[in-house]
Simulated scan of single mutants.
Amino acid sequence: MNRIILEEKINYSFKNEELLLEALTHSSYAYEHRKVKRHNERLEFLGDAVLQLLISTILFERENLNEGSMTKLRARLVCEPTLARIARQINLQEHLRLGHGETLGGGADNDSNLANAMEAVLGAVFIDGGYDACVKVAQTLFAAYIDLAIEGKLIYDHKSYLLETAHKKDFTVDFKIIDQSGPDHNRRFTAAVYIDGQLAATAEGKTKKEAEQGAAAAYIEQNKNE
Results as ranks from 00 to 15, higher is better:
Phe175Pro: 07
Phe171Lys: 04
Glu8Trp: 03
Tyr145Met: 07
Ala192Thr: 06
Asp48Met: 12
Thr190Gly: 08
Ile146Pro: 01
Leu51Asn: 01
Val36Gln: 04
Thr172Pro: 04
Phe175Arg: 00
Ile155Phe: 12
Lys168Asp: 12
Ala138Gly: 03
Ile178Pro: 01
Ala87Arg: 01
Ala87Asn: 05
Ala200Trp: 05
Leu24Trp: 00
Phe14Gln: 01
Leu59Ile: 00
Gly101Ile: 08
Glu44Asn: 09
Leu6Cys: 08
Asn110Glu: 11
Arg74Trp: 06
Thr103Met: 06
Lys136Met: 15
Gln180Leu: 08
Asp170Val: 09
Arg74Asn: 13
Ala120Lys: 02
Ile177Asp: 04
Ala216Asn: 05
Leu92Phe: 06
Ile177Val: 10
Ile90Phe: 09
Tyr156Phe: 15
Val36Lys: 04
Thr25Asn: 06
Thr103Phe: 03
Thr172Ser: 14
Glu151Met: 11
Val121His: 10
Tyr31Pro: 00
Pro81Met: 13
Thr25Ala: 08
Asn91Val: 12
Ala216Asp: 07
Arg85Lys: 15
Tyr29Ala: 03
Ala75Gln: 14
Asn225Lys: 14
Ser56Pro: 03
Ala117Ser: 14
Asp48Tyr: 12
Gly214Trp: 08
Asp111Ile: 07
Ser160Trp: 07
Ile58His: 05
Lys15Arg: 11
His167Lys: 15
Ala117Val: 11
Asn225Ser: 15
Val36Phe: 03
Ala143Pro: 03
Glu44Gly: 04
Leu122Ile: 11
Gln139Trp: 08
Thr207Pro: 08
Asp184Ile: 13
Asn91Trp: 15
Glu221Met: 15
Ser112Lys: 13
Leu73Asp: 00
Ala192Asn: 07
His26Cys: 10
His185Leu: 08
Ala216Lys: 03
Thr140Asp: 01
Leu65Glu: 09
Asp48Lys: 14
Ala143His: 09
Asp109Glu: 14
Lys15Cys: 09
Glu17Ser: 13
Arg76Lys: 13
Thr25Lys: 08
Asn64Cys: 10
Gly123Ile: 00
Gln198Phe: 14
Gln89Trp: 13
Val125Cys: 03
Gly205Leu: 06
Ile127Lys: 13
Cys79Ile: 09
Tyr12Trp: 02
Gly47Trp: 02
Lys208Gly: 08
Lys206Ile: 11
Gln93Pro: 00
Gly182Ser: 10
Gln89Cys: 13
Ile178Val: 15
Lys209Ser: 12
Met118Gln: 04
Glu41Arg: 11
Asn11Thr: 07
Ala117Leu: 05
Asn110Val: 08
Ala117Met: 05
Arg62Val: 13
Met118Thr: 00
Leu92Tyr: 00
Gly152Thr: 05
Asn113Cys: 10
Ala191Ile: 03
Asn64Gly: 04
Gly107Ile: 06
Ile146Lys: 00
Leu163Ser: 06
Arg74Cys: 14
Ala23Phe: 01
Glu204Ile: 10
Lys224Asp: 14
Lys208Val: 10
Val193Thr: 07
Thr82Asn: 05
